[in-house]
Structure formats: C-alpha cells, structure tokens
Design a protein around this nucleic acid. Structure first.
Length: 457
RNA sequence: GGUCGGAUGGCCGAGAGGCGAGGCUCGGGACUGCAAAUCCCGCUACACGGGUUCAAAUCCCGUUCCGACCUCCA
C-alpha cells in the first residue's frame, strides 16, 4: 500500500507524512468559538478532519485527537449582555449546538475537548515563561503582550513580512511597544469575567488557549495542527509565535480546510440562519449532508447551493441503495474492506473526489454482476469500506439507529408488498406504483426482480 | 500596499504536458409493466491573448475577472 502524503501549509507542498512517534499521531484541531450556532462551514472543517482521523486509524495509527472549545471571547460577552444571560450560559448553549451538529454528521468525538476557561493555569504558566525569557511584556495595565519584533521567525506560515502588514488604524500604542504586538492576556473590564494573574486580573486573549492546551495534551511537539484557512493568520501564526518563543517545537504539519462558499464568497454570519446545520438538516439527513460536505477536496472551496446539495443527496442514495441491495443478496451486511485504489486516493492528500470515482466504478461492477454473490461481496465490501472512512456508512449504528427493525415493521412492509403484487397481477400499475412510492418515501426501497420483489431499507 | 487562492461542459466537481476522472441532469437504447432499479451509448469543457513543444486545460509571459487574509472568522 502506498504511504500517506499530506499537504503542509507551511511548505506549500505535499510531502510524505511521518509521525513523530511510530504508529501514533497527535492532532490538534481548532474547534469552535462558541458564540453562535454552527453553520455548514464550521461543520465542514469537522468533517474534513474527521476523514483524516478515520483514515489514520484505518492505516494503523493510534490517534490522539484534541479539538478545543474557545468558550470566552468578545462576541460571547456581547451576546451575554444582549441576551441577558451569563456568558457561560451562552458558551454552553452553543457548545451543545456544536456537539449536536457533530453527532448528527457522525464526527467522532475528540479524544479530548478542552475548554479555554478550564486552562487558565496553563496559560499563566506559558505567559510566565514568555515574560521570564523576555519574549512578552506586561506594561502594567493588566494586559500581557507578545513582542513580535523579538521573534527570530514570525509569519512563516502565511509567508508575510512584518513590515508589510497593514496595522489597524486605531492601534493604541499606550501600552503596546509595536502595533503588531498581540495580546496574550487582556486586562479585566468592569462587568467582564476575569481570572487573577501575577500581572493583574483579566481574561485570555484569543490565541493563547490553543498553545497552552496543545502543550498540555499533546506535548511540546506534535504531528498535525488543523483548522480553517482563515486561521492561518493571525491565529496560527500567533500560536506558533507564542509556542516557539516558549521553546516548544509545536506542530510538525499544518493543514487547513477551505470554505463553504456561496456565490463565490466566504459564508458570512450575516447570511442569516438558512445555512445553519440545524436548518439544513430539515432538508437532508445528516449522512447526506456529510456526504456533500466531504465530497469536495478539503483544500477546495465548496460552492454551496441547495440544488447542489439535493443533487449530492440523490447520488448518495444511489450508493445507499447499492449497499442495501447487496445486503439483501448476501443475506448479511457486506464486510468493509479497504481497496488498494481507494487507499491510493486517500494517501494522496486525502483525494476524496478520486475515491468517489472509485466507488462509482465499484458500484458499476457490482450492478452488472447479475447478483453474483462473490462479486457483490467484493464490490459492496469495498464501497462500504470507503464509506466508513468517509463517515457515511449506512450500516453505522449512528445512522441506522433511527431505523426500526422490529417484527411489526417487517410485517407491515410485507403486507404492503403483497397488496402491491396483487395490484400488479391485475395490471393495476397505477396502484402498484403508488404503493411503491409511498413506502419509498418512508425509506423502504422496492425493486422488482425476476424472482419477485425485493425490498431493503 | 503585502500575502494567498480561484476561473473546467446545463450543474457539481477532479486532473496538472499526450490516451477527455467521476457524479447529477439531459437525449437515445437494452431490460421491464409504455413503471422502478440497473446497464449500454451519446451530448456539451478547460477565462482571454501570445509563446514554448511533435503534443498545452496542464509549462512560460501578459491580460481580464473573482475571492480570501492583513490582530479575537472554520
């Protein structure tokens, strides 16, 4: 089997992936800042990295997957005031919404999911190191800044020059030595939550939590750090700056997923609620939304439209029907296997589109096999194996749970099919088709074969 | 101003010097019940202008258009 190659944002190239420790991988994924319900862009990131994780596991790695929750930031505090509930209630509410969305899309729960506010101690420790070695300074007002000009390397991920950065026009240099210095810690304002530190009461800046938590759970050096494209600068640059200034090697490989776009533009929260995961799930099932979000290459923009979503769901149902048919022919669920072609696609920087072409080819072979059990077992096994990596295995209990398997259900379906057969015998095809369409709308697929009707769901 | 990424057929979406990924839609056919499912065939592409090459969607030069980031966005 070919070896995994991944694109590294830092080198802007694809290179063989080599874990720091044999057969073990540590991944830190920037998760949600829980300030609003998740939209499909947020969840695409979750799906993309879940596919990576599943692939690493399938190829024999033990994966420690850390995805943080940033549960304090300006917007959360604003929302708390606006909604007249405590900031922590705002954070928890949206954290739950994210968890629900991840679950609905079969995103595996992280090995650990640390919250920023649970790691103030680690942040203070990190700041102490940075102040002690002269990388950071506390001007006395309660803020703590990282002095970016002192860094040996800065902006290597986004390939920018410090002097080329546009600085904020309203940069306040009362306390900052340089407008580009960024806040590790923010002094407490009246009414805002705060934690005591040696430099005064305050709360974390945006970037500090990820450095502190990645270090806490993955150590000074780890394999992969991921997130959305827009985090490259400033968030990830600043994580690198803080961590390396503290003497940590930090992440080996940087991976960034592209956006879901609408009309060519990055989705913005001003678009309203229609692209929230919860809303989309009123139109398609979680497994269909996952198939759609995972179907484009993770580094390509995914141009969202409801038509494209519906089309993708149609395509997925065909795959699902193929597997259901296979189960019916085999008398058991096909056993998932990883085909060499699929592995080759995944090893090529997670080339899901190629993997989908392979799935289509396997289905074609299976569908032309005239129910040859050997061929069906092979092709359906390969298709199921591929789907399991994509997180879209219809037999996965996560998705199958909603289906009833009890005797009453079987009996009712048989009754309906008997009625339909009776209608067919008297050439009342309108009635027969009506029955088929009705039970199809309940998720039961009926197909006529030379040996009589076959149903699956 | 700096950095980065795009433009592919009716639609989605790969590829990155030669043999047209794949899916959805559409048209024709097989099978069937003038059905469903399935299969087969077909249709329409590489933003524009030059260049390199036996050969360019792919490389080079130029142009146009679009998007993203530039200090609390996945």
């Amino acid at each position: 089997m070919s070896a995994l190659n991944l694109y590294d944002t830092k080198t802007r190239s694809i290179a063989p992936f080599k874990s720091l420790k044999p057969k073990q991988v540590g991944i830190y994924l920037c998760g949600a800042t829980v300030q609003a319900p998740p939209h499909i862009g947020h969840i695409r990131s979750g799906v993309n990295f879940d596919i990576l994780r599943r692939w690493l596991i399938a190829t024999g790695y033990e994966v420690t997957f850390v995805r943080n929750v940033t549960d304090i930031d300006d917007k959360i505090l604003h929302k708390a005031v606006h909604e007249e509930i405590p900031w922590w209630a705002v954070a928890m509410k949206y954290e739950r919404a994210f968890t629900d969305a991840y679950n609905a899309l079969n995103v595996l729960p992280p090995t650990y999911e640390p919250r920023a506010t649970g790691h103030i101690t680690q942040m203070i420790n990190l700041m102490q190191i940075l102040i002690d070695n002269g990388s950071a300074y506390a001007p006395g007002n309660g803020d703590v800044y990282l002095e970016v000009r002192k860094l040996k390397e800065y902006l290597t991920l986004s390939n920018q020059k410090l002097d080329d950065l546009q600085t904020a026009e309203d940069a306040d240099l009362t306390y900052k030595k340089d407008p580009r210095d960024f806040a590790l810690w923010k002094a407490a304002k009246a009414g805002d939550p705060s934690w005591p530190t040696p430099w005064g009461d305050g709360r974390p800046g945006w970037h500090l939590e990820c450095s502190a938590m990645a270090h806490a759970y993955l150590g000074e050096a780890f394999d992969i750090h991921g997130g959305g494209l827009d985090l490259i600068f400033p968030h990830h640059e600043n994580e690198i700056a803080q961590s390396q200034a503290a003497g940590y090697k930090f992440a080996n490989t940087w991976m960034h997923n592209a956006w879901v776009t609408t009309s060519g533009e990055k989705m913005s929260k001003s678009l309203g609620n229609s692209l929230q995961v919860q809303e989309i799930l009123k139109k398609v099932r979680g497994i269909e939304l996952r198939w759609y979000l995972g179907s484009a290459h993770y580094r390509s923009m995914l141009e969202f439209s409801f038509d494209a979503l519906a089309e993708s769901a149609t395509a997925f149902r065909r795959v699902e029907a193929f597997l259901a048919r296979a189960k019916s022919v085999l008398g058991a669920e096909p056993q998932p296997v990883i085909a060499a072609e699929f592995a080759a696609a995944m090893n090529d920087d997670l080339a899901v589109p190629q993997a989908l072409a392979f799935i289509a080819e396997s289905m074609r072979i299976g569908n032309t096999s005239a129910d040859d059990k050997k061929v069906i077992a092979k092709t359906a096994g390969e298709v199921r194996g591929a789907l399991s990596i994509l997180g879209c295995d219809p037999f996965d209990p996560v998705f199958a749970a909603s289906k009833s398997n009890d005797a009453a259900m079987d009996g009712l379906i048989k009754l309906a099919l008997e009625q339909r057969e009776a209608a067919r015998l008297r050439k009342d095809f309108a009635a027969a088709d009506a029955i088929r369409d009705q039970i199809a709308s309940l998720g039961v697929i009926v197909e006529d074969t030379p040996n009589g009707p076959r149903w699956s769901y």
